[in-house]
Each structure stands twice: as structure tokens, then as C-alpha cells.
Amino acid sequence: MSLGQDPARLLAPISDNENARMTWLEGAEGDPPFDAVLGLRPELRDLYRAFYGKLWDEQLLPASILELCRLRVAQLHECESELAVRDEGAGVDQEQLDALAHWQESDRFSAAEREALLLAEKMPWQHHEITDEEHAALRAHFGDEGTVALTVGIALFDANCRLRLVLGTEPVPIATKAPASATGPIY
């Protein structure tokens, strides 16, 4: 089984992950753990909120596309802290969540979602294997503007998982309207 292919990873109790509870840095109490740790450098945290939050604040892509890609990248990293966050307003249904680990074999995803998920599948560990043909198909769906937004978004999803895993932020299940905003915390 390849990385992130076990659908049970998405649904398993977060406390089952042996890496889930290591916490090297403590941020301010009451804030979401990832945001609180970033808050140890408040200037960087605020600018990161403004950057990451633009994906949702300015609705650069459909929220469902962002949510599917965010969760797929988190599955690939087996990042319980990122998987614990759900965007309830994104319009991703439970059947899609159940099928996400094997999206290539599922008919639950639209053509645009499949193009986006292919990029999400390859960027974390196989970025050199994205072909010109695959990228051309992506641009056909999203255009240059959408392709740039999606690529930045997936890069940030990937970076966030790496940050969360290395910094050891605790997973805290939360349902939110947007995982980040310039005017609020990063969940």
C-alpha cells in the first residue's frame, strides 16, 4: 500500500497515532495549536495568516477543491493534526471523504476535482513526475490564474503538514468555515 492509501487513516481516532501527541513547542493557551506555535513569532504568524488565508478570503478557487486537496495532502503525510481540521462549508460530502484515499478509482469526483487531486497527489513526494501533459490538462481546467492559486495552495498544504509534524502540534478536531483567514487563526 502506498503512502496515504489507507482510508482508515482519515477516520481513525487521532489519539491512535503515536506521533500525534509529541509537542515540542507550547504556544498561547486557547489558540488552535498550530496557530499558537506560529504565534511565537507573531509578525511571521500574522503575515502567514494573510498569505494562507487569501485562498479562502478571496475565494481564489472553489472551497471544495481546496478542501479535497488539503485533506489528500494531509493523508499522504499521515498528518493527524491537519486531518483533524474540517471545512464544513466546503461542500465535501462524507462519501467523497471516504473515497479520497482512492480517488483515482472513484466516480465521486468531478473532472476539475480529479485534475486538482492529481497535482495534490504528486506535489508532496513526486513533484518531478508531473508531466507536461498533466500540467496542460490542469491549465485547461483552471487557466493560468487558477493554476497558480492551486499550486500555491497545495504547496502551502504540503508545507503546513511538514511544519505540524516537525513542530509536533497536537491534533484538535475542529469544524470551521475556513481553515485560515487574514482576520483569524490558522486552524
Partner: peptide, 18 residues
Amino acid sequence: ALAHQPGLASAFGALYGE
């Protein structure tokens, strides 16, 4: 290329510059 999304480009520049 990033300039296709001016808001993202500006926010990235501010973060990376900091």
C-alpha cells in the same frame, strides 16, 4: 507566474521579506 495572482504575490512578498 505568481503575478497571475497579485494578492497572493503581494502577501508572499511581505511574508518572505519579513
